[in-house]
């Protein structure tokens, strides 16, 4: 049996380690990329990214603007919070909208009420071209879905924005390679190694403010396939639906038409952490109405260029 010696030197707690790695990644983007942007939705993961960017670059300003791809299918609370936070940080926020792409004819919907999640990629590519971004920083995590487990921290996209599993660069130690030719793009994911629980623990530790819909509130919902479909202007109750008023919160905030809340009484971060640590359903499985179609749907979407 090996000798498992007591630690001789101080080491970091798991949250400190994750934070430090994420700061390192953000600074590598700043050091290697000439013209990057941070994808900011107002959701919890991107709010964590903003705090990490503050830790990475203050007292300086961020070396990149914030970029939001607005689907037009967002809860007002989230959009208001997005604008408030960008203003509070005194950082530049660029908003590009899927509805503008629809007007241009570059996004064509199959049905008027459909989820616009997958269409965001078109608008994002248009924004990348408009501003000449060589890197977009996103808040995706490897624990979100099986197909993401092999995603790189610096993920390469060709000039069509395509992610190709065969064309990804090996990542060794913490030596990242963000070099691209003109037109190509890197997606950098500083919180790749975080889990949902890590995110909530960090939000608690840093006392980060969140849009109100992350906390338990009363909402009219309809039960569908084991998920709760909120009753909204975009998703009205249909004939025969049984509308209930429940105490719910959102685990993720995305396109209204495909993001389901969960039943919850958690009105504080501590309450959410307790529920997250004891839940037995994954974040996507519980909240993504569009993810249940196929075990491989993420992979399909990845090939079509997700974030």
């Amino acid at each position: 049996m090996s000798s498992l010696a007591l630690q001789r030197h101080a080491t970091l707690s798991h949250l400190d380690w994750l934070e430090s790695e994420s700061i390192h990644v953000l600074r590598e983007v700043a050091g290697q990329c000439a013209n990057s942007a941070l994808l900011f939705s107002g959701g919890k993961d991107s709010l964590v990214l903003l705090r990490l960017a503050e830790k990475a670059f203050r007292p300086g300003r961020f070396p990149f603007p914030l970029l939001n791809i607005d689907t037009g299918h967002n809860y007002d609370e989230v959009i208001d919070f997005r604008d408030f936070r960008a203003c509070q940080l005194n950082e530049r926020l660029i908003v590009r909208s899927v509805e503008d792409s629809m007007r241009r004819g570059t996004v064509v919907l199959k049905s008027p009420g459909e989820s616009r999640n997958k269409h965001q990629s078109v608008t994002l590519l248009e924004a990348i071209e408009e501003f000449g971004f060589d890197c977009c920083i996103g808040g995706a995590r490897r624990d979100e879905e099986k197909a993401r487990a092999k995603e790189r921290i610096f993920s390469f996209r060709d000039e069509f924005g395509q992610w190709n599993p065969k064309n990804q660069r090996p990542e060794l130690w913490s030596l990242f390679n963000a070099r691209v030719h003109k037109g190509e793009n890197i997606r950098a994911f500083p919180i790749s190694n975080w889990t949902e629980l890590d995110v909530w623990q960090y939000i608690e530790r840093e006392a980060l403010d969140l849009p109100s819909i992350y906390f338990a509130h009363k909402r009219h919902v309809v039960r569908k396939n084991g998920l709760l479909q909120p009753v909204t202007k975009l998703t009205p109750a249909r004939e025969g639906d049984v509308v209930e008023e429940l105490s719910v919160r959102f685990r993720t905030v995305g396109d209204i038409t495909c993001t389901a809340p969960v039943e919850s009484e958690a009105k504080t971060i501590a309450g959410i952490i307790e529920e997250t640590a004891t839940t037995n359903i994954t974040e996507r499985g519980e909240t993504r109405l569009d993810d249940q179609t196929s075990e491989s749907s993420m992979e399909q979407r990845k090939k079509e260029d997700p974030f």
Partner: peptide, 24 residues
């Protein structure tokens, strides 16, 4: 043991980025 906890190592700090906020 986690990394770095076991042996004395020399201090190494590669400079990643320089912060000069004088324009603020």
């Amino acid at each position: 043991p986690s990394a770095h906890s076991e042996r004395d190592e020399r201090f190494r700090f590669p400079v990643q980025f320089i912060c000069r906020p004088q324009k603020s």
